[in-house]
Amino acid sequence: MNMSRAVDGAELLVPYELRPDRSARYFARIVGKWLLRLAIFVLAIMALHLLITSDTIEWHVVAQYLTAPAILQGVITTLVLTAIAMIIGILLGGLLALMRLSNSLLLNGVTSLYLWFFRGTPLLVQILFWYNLASFIKRISIGIPFGPSFISWNTNDLISPLTAAILALGLNQAAYMCEIVRAGILGVDEGQLEASAALGMTSSRAFRRIVLPQAMRIIIPPTSNNAIGLLKDSSLVSVISMTELLYAVQQVYSRTFQTIPLLIVASIWYLMMTTVTSIGQYYIERHYGRGTRRDQRLSAVARITVMFRKNLLSVVKVG
């Protein structure tokens, strides 16, 4: 640079030169990126070709069974089973979380034991265990412990595939929900409770009106993940002949031997259900996200666009 030129203050500013990068590494990167895109494109075409032209898939069979009454009944059972188990999971999990957060050593201990068992054993084992409860506990009765009982049932009458499935999925879900709810409540700033108390709120009101709505923001994303997981895991109860979606499909292909087309039918339904759940998650999150963003006036469309662009960008970067 010509130093003598720099007398005036403005002259000191060296203009920033945007020189195009022409190094070998730069070109290698560009070529690499395009090669990768090409490879993915070719693989996708191959996969599509396989799906469309394969003899084993038999798309007309898929179409035939997709809305068959037996399959639809299975879909409904899967949905109902997931919903009931999720509700049990959320309610019991919430209760367990409160027990875990309490100062009582006894309640803490009970919760720890619960989590230890239900998270430490495979769900499949738990399903089989509940189904075979009758061989372990013969009768279930309500009454005075070790004293007279008022009502009593034969466990075998009580435990159908349905009740075993609900118990297994619900109790297992509760163990996971407990940790999610607990983390959500702990994630709310302590100052919020102090401000509530200083305003004269009772602790139960402060929990209901101030802590819980804020905890929901933290609780909902992992909860919908769990709901999606549960939707899929509910297929495990096919092992106890609970006629949900997978078992309904199995019953058909054990007769017709059209295994692959029917598994595709099941997959299509599972994908539809998980997709709808994900969309629901977006709206619930938006509801509980009130007040967390500065740009409140951004429309839903604009926000989805932003979300999409962010995700897309990260995918491209990874690629």
Binding site: A197, A198, G200, Q214, R290, G291, T292
Partner: peptide
Amino acid sequence: GPELAKQRRRLGMVFQHFNLFPHM
């Protein structure tokens, strides 16, 4: 607790970090 909560209504408090309810 509930009785103490009633008494606290008589004392207003302002915190260093505001502690506004962000969801409202």
